[in-house]
Every structure is written in structure tokens, then in C-alpha cells.
């Protein structure tokens, strides 16, 4: 058990290292560098000025030296600063992350709250009317792009009913209800597709779990169907769901550009797009490494949840 956890931690550290190398050099491969944006266009032809600045910035050092310098700062949390706004990347993150984080958690939360019961009912009533109705409804949800859902929700709940704000994000510290109200519509827009995916996963796994002998044994003990579904079948049916939830949290934390744009919320996604359009290399690098790190941590968490859910993994049988 402890060995298992240690092994997973070690793997996470190794992955992080690989990720940092990859992102650093991939951004490095992009055409142009800091020199191109920092030096005003009229001075670009003045070789002396250009060279002097490049030297000062360390842009002429070999790549691995630059990587070393960058990594040294990065592990202390210093991801450098924007060449354009002079804002440290860590400050940018601390402003944008709460928005994205909240959006992500709400979206995944909404998706799970509906997906799990729907998936269970679908599996339990496999092939019957309720299963077909649920599957049909979810199929519809799956095929509508999330910004279309967003536009509809804004029109209905913000403009027609006026219950919820159409755009903007309020800090939790300013107003709790304002904060929650602001996040509902964008989160629901994001949740719809995930809900369909999660529900299908649960349904498929549940259907195969329900064929298991131990489900029949539980039935032969006189336990109710509800009890069997909740206390015997759900846990073994949730492993692929856990993996996919992890992946989706990762991709949502990496930013949800369209929805952030639609609801005028400046999250990580917007920050990244801005940086890319302005070729703000330091910011691109910093954000990319951050997102990759998030993925690694989520994957590790997923592994730990697996261990908690299935005791067989704990004793190292799989």
C-alpha cells in the first residue's frame, strides 16, 4: 500500500519533469521570441540594439541553459512575467484560476448529480422505455454545442425571466449569492455534454456489473433492488467514470474559451488565448506548464481514488 503510493508519487514527479521539458522546448520552437516583441519595430533593424537586448535577456544562451534558469524559478513558483504587461504569470494565475476552478467544479458537479442517477436507472431498466427516453435525451444533449446551450440559457433565464445574470463573474468575497448566480448558467452550458458522457459510462459499466454473480447472490439474500444498485453495484461500476471525470476536470481547468467568452468571464482559457494572439511567450509557457501540472495531479488523484474504491488494487493484485 505505502509502496504503491510512493510509486505513484514518483511517477507524478517524473511526469512533471518530462512535461516541463516538453512545454519549454515546444514553446521555444515557435517562430520568433521575446526579442521580437520587446524591441519596437523601428529599432528591429538596428543590429546593435537587438543584440544587446538579446544578450541581456539571455536569449542567446543555449536552450538547455535557458531551460535550467527557467526551471529554477518555476519550482519556486516564479513562472516569469508577461513581456507586455509586466504582470507576473503567478499573479495572472491567481486572478484567473478561481474563476476557472469554480466553473469547473460546478460544471462537473451538475453533470455528476444528474448523470449518476440517470445512468443507474438506464442500466436497471435496460431496453425499456425509461432507458430509451434517457438515452435519447442525452443523445440530444450531446449533439448541441455548448455555446448554443449557453446562448439559449442566457436568452431564457437572463433575458426572459431575469433570474440570473447574463454575463460577468462576482468574487465570492463580494457576494456569495452573486457569485453562485453568476456561475450557474455557464456551468450548466458546460455540464450538458459531460452529463451525457458520464451517464453513458455509468450505464455501460452498470449493465455489466448487474450480470455479475454477486449481484445475483445479493438478490438471493432478499436485498432490495435499490439497495443492490446503491450498495453493491455502483462502486464496481464507477471506475471508468472516475477516469473520465478526472480527464474532464483537467480539460476544463485548462480553460473553456468559448464559454468564458460568451459569459464574459476572464478565466484561464481567455488568458491563454490572449497570450497566444499577442505572442506573449513567457505567459504561454507558464500557463501551459500550469495546465500540464494540473493534469498530472488529477491523474495521480484518480489513481488514489481507484485504490480507495477497489480493495483488490490495494493489495497489488492488479
Amino acid at each position: 500500500m505505502q509502496k504503491l503510493i510512493a510509486a505513484r508519487l514518483l511517477r507524478a514527479v517524473a511526469t512533471l519533469f518530462a512535461v516541463s521539458v516538453l512545454t519549454f522546448f515546444m514553446v521555444d520552437l515557435l517562430p520568433g521570441d521575446l526579442g521580437d516583441i520587446l524591441i519596437p519595430a523601428e529599432q528591429q533593424n538596428d543590429r546593435a540594439i537587438v543584440e544587446q537586448l538579446r544578450e541581456e535577456l539571455g536569449l542567446n544562451d543555449p536552450a538547455f541553459v535557458r531551460y535550467g534558469n527557467w526551471l529554477k524559478d518555476a519550482v519556486t513558483g516564479d513562472l516569469g512575467e508577461s513581456a507586455i504587461t509586466r504582470q507576473p504569470v503567478s499573479t495572472l494565475l491567481s486572478q484567473r484560476l478561481p474563476i476557472t476552478l469554480q466553473l469547473t467544479l460546478f460544471a462537473i458537479g451538475f453533470a455528476l448529480i444528474f448523470a449518476v442517477p440517470l445512468g443507474i436507472i438506464s442500466a436497471y431498466r435496460q431496453g425499456r422505455f425509461s432507458d430509451r427516453a434517457i438515452s435519447g435525451g442525452l443523445q440530444l444533449g450531446l449533439s448541441i454545442p455548448n455555446f448554443v446551450v449557453g446562448v439559449f440559457l442566457i436568452w431564457f433565464f437572463a433575458e426572459r425571466l431575469g433570474w440570473l445574470p447574463a454575463t460577468g463573474w462576482t468574487r465570492l468575497t463580494e457576494s456569495v449569492s452573486g457569485n453562485v448566480k453568476g456561475v450557474i448558467l455557464p456551468a450548466v452550458s458546460l455540464a450538458l455534454v459531460d452529463m451525457a458522457v458520464f451517464s453513458r459510462l455509468i450505464r455501460a459499466d452498470m449493465i455489466s456489473t448487474l450480470q455479475e454473480n454477486y449481484v445475483l447472490s445479493a438478490k438471493a439474500k432478499g436485498m432490495s433492488d435499490r439497495f443492490i444498485l446503491a450498495r453493491h453495484a455502483l462502486r464496481p461500476s464507477s471506475l471508468s467514470l472516475i477516469t473520465v471525470v478526472g480527464l474532464n476536470i483537467g480539460s476544463l481547468l485548462g480553460g473553456t474559451v468559448v464559454i468564458e467568452q460568451l459569459f464574459a468571464m476572464g478565466g484561464i482559457g481567455r488568458a491563454l488565448i490572449d497570450a497566444i494572439t499577442k505572442r506573449d511567450y513567457v505567459v504561454i509557457q507558464g500557463l501551459t506548464v500550469f495546465i500540464a501540472t494540473v493534469y498530472v495531479f488529477i491523474n495521480m488523484t484518480v489513481d488514489f481514488i481507484y485504490i480507495a474504491v477497489d480493495p483488490r488494487i490495494r493489495s497489488g493484485r492488479t
Binding site: 454477486y214 445475483l216 447472490s217 438471493a220 439474500k221 436485498m223 462502486r235 474504491v309 480493495p311
Partner: peptide, 30 residues
């Protein structure tokens, strides 16, 4: 009737116990 009046011991003990539920609960729940 199930469990209380009549019950069954199944063929394969490897698969007729729930792998993620402790033995204790599997004997006590019914």
C-alpha cells in the same frame, strides 16, 4: 422468502461475493 425462507449457495465462490465489500457487511446486511 429469499434469504429468510430459502437461500442458495452458488457454484463459484470466486465470483459470488462482492469484491469491493467487506465480508462482514456481506454476512450482516440481510
Amino acid at each position: 422468502y429469499w434469504g429468510a425462507e430459502m437461500s442458495m449457495v452458488f457454484q463459484d465462490p470466486m465470483t459470488s461475493l462482492n469484491p469491493v465489500v467487506r465480508i462482514g457487511r456481506q454476512i450482516t446486511e440481510h
